[in-house]
Write a protein that binds this DNA or RNA. Structure first.
Length: 449
DNA sequence: CATCCGTGGCG
DNA sequence: TCGCCAAGGAT
């Protein structure tokens, strides 16, 4: 055991060597050799044992852990959990599985129903890919979720992480996983400097994860790593005092837990201004379908128009109304505005209500290029189709606006009683506020130039 | 390889 | 308020 020729990467640099301090000035630590791990070295055995013992004592009771043998349930969970936190997913998970308890049930379902249950969860392409994966599992695998990483990774929406997770958690295969949590844990454990997204570091981390995962209980081990990252080895203020790996953690020894992993630099989100129009007729609201690709792809949307750089929102509104009403004269009354922060965009919606009932009669006179349809929905029906959180907010704002107008007494109609949204929307409208520059054209929201 | 894709929580 | 991050994958 003193010699381990095939063993690597030793997180501490070697069986007997001490960990070299990680430079905090941005230099990288010397690259370590990464080769497949042979099981059984003392350090790695301790790592596994401590982590698994901790997991057995502290694992959270999560919905998908209650049916460990249900490959379909696990697959759904893994799709939902991609780039999404556990707390967010749990609200959607049970409802989705109740509606689609089997691969076949999802494979048969119309895309509309899938997106409706995904509404608000984000990254909607995942829903379409899960849908397609279910169909292919039925068609090509007899309805059984495949058990090897190679087969899994050929399915849409399944990459190396998800394939490893399913193979290990459901089928007990010795396959590693590397997600954001595992990456952070391992980077801290070995006090690795460098860009976590750099390919060479990624490869080394995959190699390390591969070396660490045991033959026995690989799924539990992988989950324990992720669980540790999610609950103890958190990005900020990690709970090192209760960490099962604290005795062997290089970052802790070197006082680098607050520094590692090195933060990614992100661009500041780009400002994007959108006018949206509420077109009401017979108690229904007009929705248009967004193009399948791009932002909020395939979801239903209110009619929108991008505000060009330097343009007043009202100009875009006029353009939108003209396009919808086929040149008819109609006006939009400002309802309010909302702002959504996306990963790399800050989208401001200004909502208007179309006034003038005759105008709504001829709508939609034409459709935008890329739109695949439109429909009129009653308020209680909007939950049945896929809509983004932004649209949910717009609808809620419209509802508040309506009830205010219906119930308020005239003397209550003073600025102090109006919501901030409406006030801002109205103020912006009156001021003829211009859109900020630097906006890009939103896919599917072309200015139909 | 870089960029794109949503949303919510946290300090 | 604001930046960062999350059980990533596709292009």
């Amino acid at each position: 055991m003193s010699e381990n020729p095939g063993r690597s990467p030793d997180p501490a640099g070697g069986p007997r060597r001490r960990q070299k301090p990680a430079p905090s000035d941005g230099r990288r630590l010397p690259a370590r050799r990464s080769r497949p791990e042979r099981p059984g070295t003392g350090r790695i055995r301790r790592f596994r044992a401590r982590l698994l013992a901790w997991y057995d004592a502290h694992r959270r009771d999560l919905p998908w852990r209650r049916r460990p043998d249900d490959a379909w349930a696990q697959l759904v969970a893994e799709f939902m959990l991609q780039q999404t936190q556990v707390a967010t997913v749990t609200a959607y998970y049970e409802r989705f599985l109740r509606r689609f308890p089997t691969v076949e049930s999802l494979a048969r379902a119309p895309q509309e129903a899938v997106l409706a249950l995904w509404s608000g969860l984000g990254y909607y392409r995942r829903a379409r890919m899960l849908h397609e994966a279910a169909r292919r599992i039925v068609r090509e695998h007899g309805g059984e979720v495949p058990s090897t990483v190679d087969e899994l990774a050929r399915l849409p929406g399944i990459g190396r992480y998800t394939a490893g997770a399913i193979a290990s958690i459901v089928f007990g295969r010795r396959e590693p996983v590397l997600d954001g949590n595992v990456r952070r844990v391992l980077i801290r454990w070995q006090a690795t400097d460098g860009d976590p997204d750099a390919p060479d570091l990624r490869k080394r981390l995959w190699d390390l994860a591969e070396a660490l995962v045991p033959r026995r209980r690989p799924g539990d081990f992988n989950q324990s790593l992720m669980e540790l990252g999610a609950t103890v080895c958190t990005p900020r203020a990690p709970g090192c005092g209760v960490c099962p790996l604290r005795r062997s953690c290089a970052a802790r020894r070197l006082g680098l837990t607050e520094i590692l992993p090195r933060a990614k630099r992100r661009r500041t989100p780009e400002a994007l201004n959108i006018v949206a129009l509420a077109v009401e007729r017979d108690g229904r609201l007009l929705f248009v379908r967004r193009p399948a690709r791009g932002l909020w792809g395939g979801l239903w949307d209110l009619p929108t128009e991008a505000v060009a750089c330097g343009e007043r929102p009202t100009q875009a509104l006029r353009r939108l109304v003209r396009r919808l009403a086929g040149g008819r004269r109609a006006v939009g009354r400002p309802v309010g505005r909302i702002t959504r922060l996306l990963t790399h965009r800050k989208v401001t919606f200004r909502l208007y209500r179309l006034t003038g009932t005759p105008a709504a009669r001829g709508i939609p006179a034409g459709r935008r290029a890329g739109d695949t349809g439109y429909r009129w929905l009653k308020p209680d029906e909007s939950g049945r189709v896929g809509v983004s959180r932004a649209v949910q907010s717009l609808i809620a704002m419209l509802d508040r606006h309506r009830s205010r107008r219906r119930f308020r007494r005239p003397e209550a109609d003073r600025p102090g009683r109006r919501s901030r949204d409406q006030l801002q929307g109205a103020a912006a409208e009156e001021a003829g506020e211009e859109s900020g520059c630097g906006t890009v054209s939103l896919t599917g929201t072309s200015t139909d130039g």
